[in-house]
């Protein structure tokens, strides 16, 4: 065998070639356009200020609806993802069942959240109901995967010890897997809720309730000062929820021996 080309250098060169090629193809290296872009951005940001504080009474109920969509959707998705993760765990079920469960979860995960929004707006009509269902399915795609991976990471000795008592797999799940992964489950659930605030905002774009509806409306009607107000509000809410959630998660996942 001849001398091998260093793998690391090879990967760097390939990534560099691909990057430059895609930059050229996508017009990113077209300098004449950049001047235009900066000029437009400057105009846009001038029009964003000052934010219109007087529309807060309209936006507050809307963002409250978004928070509720995120909350309800996360809880619903959590309830759906538990059984799917249970069925997807190799320590509990055979290859056939886990493959089907994991395939379903994978299929759900490939659909972007906004597409779920559209699907449910068609199914149940405009409004937050569609948003909740969309967020719920989106949640299943992620939580179920994180959960079955957590279930499988449970210490093999604990599984063996509990299984050797002659219990069935529901009992094994209830007494070994669930308590051993409980902190992970809750901490990931909080993270998902945090993340779903953003997903719920997007839901409004397609008329599935919440503040996203206003966001899109302001863009289309060129009301950039209204838009600025909505963005500030979303920013504050997301920061607040992130902070609270982070605090709780840090407490839950503190190691204990």
């Amino acid at each position: 065998m001849s001398k091998r080309f260093p793998t690391g250098a090879g990967i760097v060169i390939i990534v560099a070639i691909l990057s430059v090629a895609s930059f050229i193809n996508l017009g990113l290296l077209d300098v004449s356009r950049w001047g235009l872009a900066f000029r437009n951005l400057a105009i846009f940001s001038r029009e964003l200020s000052p934010p219109r504080w007087d529309i807060l009474p309209v936006l507050l109920p809307a963002i409250w609806e978004t928070i509720q969509i995120s909350f309800a959707g996360t809880i619903l998705g959590f309830l759906l993802s538990l059984p799917l993760a249970f069925l997807g765990t190799h320590t509990l079920f055979n290859q056939l069942i886990t493959t089907v469960a994991r395939g379903l979860v994978g299929a759900i995960r490939t659909v972007p959240s906004i597409l779920f929004g559209i699907i449910f707006v068609i199914a149940v009509g405009l409004g937050p109901k569609a948003g909740v269902l969309g967020v719920a399915l989106y949640t299943v795609g992620y939580l179920a995967k994180i959960y079955y991976e957590a279930f499988e990471a449970v210490d093999g000795e604990v599984i063996e010890a509990v299984r050797s008592t002659g219990c069935n797999r529901l009992q094994l799940f209830r007494f070994a897997i669930l308590p051993e992964t409980f902190n992970t489950l809750i901490s990931q659930l909080l993270f998902m809720f945090e993340y779903n605030i953003r997903a719920s905002t997007i839901m409004g774009f397609v008329g599935a309730g919440g503040i996203g509806y206003y966001l899109v409306g302001y863009v289309q009607m060129l009301q950039y000062q209204h838009l600025m107000m909505a963005i500030i509000l979303i920013f504050v809410v997301i920061m607040a929820i992130d902070l609270v959630s982070f605090r709780i998660r840090a407490r839950i996942s503190a190691p204990r021996y």
Partner: peptide
Amino acid sequence: AYIPQNLGLVRNL
């Protein structure tokens, strides 16, 4: 009845 090396207790219970 089987007792594994590291006991296999569920620490959260």
